[in-house]
Amino acid sequence: MDWAQLFSVALGAILVNNFIVAQFLGICPFMGVSKKVETASGMGLAVIFVMGLASAICWPINQFILVPMGLTFMQTVTYILVIAALVQFIEMFLKKSMPSLYEALGVYLPLITTNCAVLGVVLQNTQNSYDFITSVVYGVTGGIGFLLVIVIFASIRERMEFSDCPKAFEGFPIALMAAGLVALAFLGFSGLKVFG
């Protein structure tokens, strides 16, 4: 196994090609649940979990069912069904065995189904033809990148509550502006190249 390559995939997913600020995936939950640091970190943790698991499950399905049967055009449909089923399953499992975590995640768990970062990571795994381990690493680290940005952004937004801004910009537009500045900060990582 090539550790250097895994490391560069991981670093890329967290900083350089961050899912939110560099690839524009998962903007809806990013803007929706970033009003408080606590809920934002809960959402981030749930996303790490689901992205890792979805990568792990979709890889064998693609490799051993869709490709041999020549059904690769069904990828999008299959993946979204897998993700929806997975989220439902995790929800039932957590409710029974880990009620405390279930309550912490609350409504954010079902919302993950329509998070484009999850479908995006699975589709990218297929497009880049990553092997199993790289796929899982990419999924988990992509989730970590999501957590990092959403927590940073939520803490900025908490401070912004008390600041003055033009009337037309109140609420959503000023939050988008702040997100733009976070994206600008992360742009600084784009020069970062590890092992070529």
């Binding site: 600020v21 560099a22 524009f24 033009p166 009337k167 037309a168 910009f169 109140e170 609420g171 959503f172 537009p173 000023i174 988008l176 502006m177 997100a179 733009g180 500045l181 994206a183 600008l184 742009l187």
Partner: peptide
């Protein structure tokens, strides 16, 4: 060049929504 990069996307949409709120209000 920044306007083509993600930063520009966030800022353009912010201004657009602000303009819309201004007119609708």
């Amino acid at each position: 060049l920044g306007m083509i990069l993600p930063v520009g996307g966030f800022i353009t949409l912010a201004v657009l929504i602000a303009a819309m709120q201004y007119f609708l209000n």
